[in-house]
Each structure stands twice: as C-alpha cells, then as structure tokens.
C-alpha cells in the first residue's frame, strides 16, 4: 500500500489521512483501514504510549503542552491524540485543545490530532487504538492520549497505553473515595497538577493524601505507585515525570510486564472486535426481521410473556 510507505516515511498528510480512515464510520473506509492496520502492525516502531486522564479542567492539555515542550526540547518526537469531550449529542463539536497547546503545536517534531469523543464509552473515540498504531509506525517516540476521566473511561483508556497517568488537582483528596480500588489498579502514576501560587499548600497536602491512600491499597507484590507534584503553568516537576515514566517502563520491561500488558491488550482488542462484529450483525438481523416490535405487541396484548418473547426472538435471530 502506498499509504503505508508514506506513513513510515513520516509524511504528515498521509498520517492525517490514515487517522481519518480509521475513525471513519463508512464501511469502505473501514475495510481499507483494516488492511492498513494489518500492514502497519507488521512494522512496529518503538513508541511508548502514555495515557493522561483526569477530570475536566484539571489541566491535562496544559500539562501536555508543558511536558511535551520539555520532551521536544530533548529531541523526542511526540504524537498527541486529544479526545475532546466537548461534542454535543445532536450538534457537532468545538475542538479547542489547540488553544491550550500553542507552543508544541508549532514544533515540527509533534503531530497533534483532536478527535470529538461523540459520547462513546469512556470518552475514547472509535479509532484511537488504530491511530496510535499509525503514529507508532510513523516513528514517534511517545504517543500521548488525552482523555477526560469520567466513570469507566480510565479503564478503557488504560487498555490502549503502556503507562497510564491520572492527573488530579489540588484539593481533590475528597474524591479519593471515588478512586479507591478500581483506578489504583489501572493508573501507574498520579500527577497532582497546579502546584503553584496560592495552591501550593493544598497541592502538597493532596499528594500526601494520595500517597497514604495508595499505600493502603497496595498489593504485596506491587511496585509503590508514584505520586508526583507538578505545575503545568510554571513548568515545574517535568524531569520527575519523564524519569518516573522511564523507570516504570524499564522495570516493566525487565519483569516482562511490558510485553504481558501488550499481550493482554491485544487479547482485549480481539475480543472487542469480535464482539463488535457480532453485535452489529445481530443488530442488523434484528432490524431486518422486525421481531422486536412484532413480539412486544404480543406481549402487550398478553398473548405471551415477556420472557417467552425474548426466547423466541433470540432463537429466531441466532438461526442462520
């Protein structure tokens, strides 16, 4: 495929077009997209994929601008996938991430793509995983994925990356209740942002709260989870972040966790794809046969029970 060569050469427009393909809801695009991804997977790059999640307005984009500038100044190539939560259900969306990533977006060693989340589960959009495969093949050293942390999203997002980071704000200790067990399993690093000005005290206190809560939930064989203090605005704490990321990656590689995770993610991906195909197939059959309205009417009229209807429809739908 011509597109594959162009991506591997790092041609900006080709990468962008490829991401459009993997995000497209059009069948023909999806077919090409599958071919493309199959080819690209054979030529993996060396990227480390890092997820940044956290509540709205905590400073994820500003942090990425700040941390990203630091990495680029160290000559790393950086790909950023920003999943923008601003989309409305009916309307389109305003993608404003670039107004927060002014400096790095100018740098020739970055590639920044915003995608409207369209309310999909976990704020991860269709195609995010594929997009990171494209950027990997294109030779980016780091791929950052920015998602808004609400509900289930962390879990979905953490399934796409090698290292998962939760960004929180000063005073978010109250939310500790909410993060409890679940998230501590998924997040590798906790970053307390806005450690500056009047917020400094509060930020340190929050970091301490996280540390003690995390040690409480720590499993025996697990590494100590890292809690870092940064200020995205004043660009402080950035070296610690990269040091910690590198440490965790090195350790995980050494212990085989790195590959294990990628294998798990592949499994998860395959499972998901299979489920998707089956689900859409079933949906198609359901609509074409028109059984749902037919049988629900029967239930309404008391001609059969709800469960009888479910059973009959299921049987009929699964029949080839």
């Amino acid at each position: 495929m011509e597109l594959v060569d162009k991506i591997i050469k790092g041609e900006r427009a080709a990468i962008a077009k490829a991401i459009t393909l993997v995000e497209s809801s059009k069948d023909t695009d999806q077919q090409i997209s599958r071919q493309l991804i199959s080819e690209l997977i054979k030529k993996p790059g060396k990227s480390i994929r890092v997820g940044f999640s956290g509540p709205p307005g905590v400073g994820k984009s500003t942090f990425i601008e700040s941390f990203g500038s630091y990495l680029v100044s160290q000559n790393y190539k950086l790909g950023i996938l920003a999943i923008d939560p601003s989309s409305q259900i009916t309307g389109g969306s305003i993608l404003g991430d670039k107004t927060r990533m002014v400096e790095i977006s100018k740098n020739p060693n970055t590639f920044i793509r915003s995608t409207p989340s369209r309310g999909t589960l976990g704020g991860i959009s269709m195609g995010t995983r594929e997009a990171s495969i494209i950027l990997d093949a294109a030779g980016y050293d780091f791929i950052f994925i920015e998602t808004v942390g609400v509900g289930q999203s962390e879990i979905v997002a953490s399934n796409l990356v090698d290292i998962f980071t939760l960004i929180v704000g000063p005073g978010s200790g109250d939310e500790l209740q909410g993060i409890k067990k679940g998230i501590t399993e998924y997040a590798d690093i906790f970053i307390v942002n806005k450690n500056d000005g009047e917020l400094k005290m509060e930020a340190s206190k929050t970091a301490a709260d996280y540390k003690s809560a995390l040690s409480y939930y720590k499993k025996l064989d697990e590494l100590e989870k890292q809690v870092l203090l940064v200020s995205a605005i004043e660009q402080t704490g950035m070296e610690d972040v990269i040091k910690t990321i590198n440490q965790i990656i090195d350790q995980n590689k050494l212990k085989g966790i790195f590959d294990e995770r990628r294998a798990d993610q592949l499994e998860y991906w395959i499972e998901e794809e299979v489920k998707n195909i089956i689900a859409s197939d079933i949906t198609n059959r359901l609509t074409s046969k028109g059984n749902i309205p037919k049988y629900s009417e029967k239930v309404m009229k008391n001609e059969m029970s709800m469960y009888e209807a479910v059973e009959t429809i299921t049987k009929d739908t699964l029949e080839q």
Binding site: T90, G91, G92, S93, L95, K98, T99, V102, S114
Partner: peptide, 14 residues
C-alpha cells in the same frame, strides 16, 4: 459556536 450547533466539527485555533 454556530457552526458546531448546526453539526459541523469545528477546530478552534488559538
């Protein structure tokens, strides 16, 4: 904002 309300995806530059 108006274009987004009509259904466009709008990227806003700085």
């Amino acid at each position: 904002t108006s274009f987004a309300d009509m259904g466009f995806d709008v990227d806003m530059g700085p």
